[in-house]
């Protein structure tokens, strides 16, 4: 591929926005906020990815999916870089991503609450509220209760709605 024909990074971002998260296919890896940078080094495209949870098994699959998509678009030389810092936070999930999560039946993380989960939990405990109020993604009721802080994947907690009685996942803040 000649240098003149290399796609712009804006174009690359656009393509990456079509790569679904393997566990929650309604949102893209861009919505999730895990793509930290895209740049060309000569004719090699460097994609910088940050892991959500350090042990998330989806990480390897995500890189494979990104590679497959970019190869199909004609990117010949590709390299991944892993960036740990700043650590991924649910605050980076885009507004669009949050809405997609809600429509899919997963309560999105409480906005802006992720900066220090420990402090948040402690202040909640001291104030007598055990948890932030999470609205049911099915019926919108705020009468919900936590079943378990740990859910079907590392990033989710299990909740249930006491109005419509549906169980649901909550994308917990980190």
């Amino acid at each position: 591929m000649a240098t003149a024909t290399l796609p712009s990074t804006a174009e690359i971002w656009h393509w990456l926005d079509e790569v679904p998260d393997p566990e929650i296919p309604v949102i893209s890896v861009v919505d999730l906020g895990i793509i930290r940078a895209v740049r060309w080094e000569g004719e090699t495209l460097v994609v910088t990815v940050t892991p959500t949870y350090s042990g998330c098994p989806a990480t390897a699959v995500i890189n494979l999916d990104i590679e497959q998509t970019l190869r199909e678009k004609g990117v010949a030389k590709l390299r991944f870089e892993r960036r740990l810092s700043p650590a991924w936070t649910t605050d980076w999930i885009s507004a669009e991503g949050r809405e997609k999560l809600r429509r899919y039946g997963i309560a999105p993380p409480v906005d802006g609450a992720a900066s220090d989960a420990m402090l948040r939990q402690r202040s909640a405990r001291l104030s007598g509220r055990s948890d932030p109020i999470i609205a049911c993604p099915q019926c919108g009721s705020t009468k919900t209760e936590k079943i378990s802080q740990f859910g079907s994947t590392p990033c989710k907690a299990s909740y249930r709605c006491t109005d419509c009685l549906e169980p649901f996942d909550y994308f917990k803040c980190i």
Binding site: Y53, S54, L84, A117, M118, K172, I174
Partner: peptide
């Protein structure tokens, strides 16, 4: 960098 990442996860472990 590793500590920053891990501390967020471990805060949940301790909470539970």
């Amino acid at each position: 960098d590793i500590a920053e990442k891990a501390a967020k996860e471990v805060a949940y472990h301790l909470d539970r």
